[in-house]
Amino acid sequence: MRFRADIQNNNVFTKLTASLASLGPVAWVKLSNEDVRFTVIPDNGSSVWAKDQIFETYTIQSAAENNTINLEVPLQNLHRALKSAQNASHASIRLTKKNNIPLLSLTITTAIFAGAPKPVAHSAPPDQHGYDPGYPTDDEFGNPFLTDELDEPVYDRPNRETIITQDIPIKVLSPAVVAGLSEPRAREPDVHIQLPPLLQLKSISDRFTKLAVSSMKTPNGSTGFRGNTARAPKLELSANMHGCLRLRLKTDAMDISSKWTGLNNPELDPQTIEGGEEGIAQHPSTRMRTRGDPEGISDEGWAVVRLDGKDWGKVLGIGRVGGRVIACFCDEHALILYVYLTNEDAAGPESVITYYISSYSQ
């Protein structure tokens, strides 16, 4: 079993692991010939499936079917190791073993300046007798001799490289262990819409959640829902096919909402929809587009999901990574977020993180 790869974008990889770590302590990492998949399935809350093109010069060798390797990786340890490589000129990762313990070994190469500029001596030109003194002299007016050209400083020692290796203990999972894990499937979405900047959405969502917690506090100061997700504050998120998104908090004490308009409802690709153009014509989102209005005033044509406020806030932490986010609403059933990460290679495939969030009943 072998695996080795150069890290293509350490900055994105670091932000990705930070976002995943907020949802759970460990990730199932599936390595294959095609891609790398990170999966976090916590006991409670949202599950996340990340298909990322973060590696280059990829080498994998396994006796398992389809040449795959399944690992259980502690996310906090991986994140800390990647943070130490922020200023690295090169970083690579490989699967190894020490004292019979499987490890992910992160090798960081950092260029360190090891010399100081050495003064450049300028010699005076030969005098009228053809004699070259070989050192700076004064000109005929008594001024120090200067050259007309600006020379680059000369370094007396070249730069050197420092190599640091950090080992992250992991578990190698057998195919039988992960056989029952699969990405959740949902019906075709009723509404798909590009979300506003996630950090903006997170700020408002966190504010609503804090208001809900405050309104639910008992006289002794407790909230009364510790460990009971059924009574935790819920946020209602809804959208339509006319570019409108609404975030609402409704409790016994308050009913407040924020609404965005003018958002983009991406066009469906006939090549990805069963039945092509005919399939698009019969798609739930196409039928939903005929309902409601661009201002979102009408109650018609909205798809609604109800989310745990604290869990939703963790999901929105992916906003630190950047990139566009498409939200797919399956009315009263689930919300699926597709986070498309910025790729340095414009011609290369986009990295995608998929969040699956189940909706609570009303």
Rank of each mutant, 00 (worst) to 15 (best):
P169H: 06
A212H: 10
P294N: 00
S285G: 03
T251N: 03
I54R: 06
P270H: 07
V213Q: 12
E274S: 14
S359E: 03
K217E: 11
T272N: 08
K217L: 09
G296K: 00
F141I: 04
L173M: 07
N77W: 01
P133I: 03
Y340L: 11
C244R: 05
C328P: 09
S89N: 15
P133M: 02
D345F: 10
F3G: 13
R289W: 06
G134R: 01
H90P: 11
P158K: 09
G301P: 08
F225Y: 11
D252H: 08
L235R: 10
Y135R: 10
V12H: 15
T218E: 14
I297M: 13
P219H: 04
A85G: 11
N143R: 06
L95N: 12
H90Q: 14
S46D: 06
H79Q: 07
A281Y: 01
S205Q: 05
S92H: 04
E34M: 14
P219R: 01
Q282T: 11
P284C: 11
P197T: 00
G24F: 07
A64Q: 04
A21R: 15
E267G: 09
N99M: 13
E72N: 08
E152W: 09
P175M: 01
L181K: 01
Q53F: 15
A114K: 05
I164D: 15
P219I: 00
P219Y: 00
P25L: 05
G279Q: 10
L71E: 03
I357P: 06
L316G: 04
N159G: 14
Y135C: 05
H333S: 15
G45R: 02
H283L: 06
I108T: 13
N11M: 15
Y355M: 01
Q200N: 12
I326F: 06
S361M: 11
L16S: 00
I112V: 15
F13K: 08
F38E: 04
S92G: 15
S182P: 00
L249R: 02
A281N: 02
H333A: 14
K259D: 06
G292P: 04
Q200D: 12
G313A: 11
A186T: 15
V315L: 09
A63D: 07
S351I: 01
A5D: 14
S19F: 02
R80P: 08
L341Q: 12
A253T: 08
D139F: 00
V352G: 12
M216Q: 14
G323A: 00
S359K: 00
V26I: 07
T251D: 00
G224I: 04
G243P: 11
Q128K: 13
I7S: 07
K314C: 07
E152Q: 12
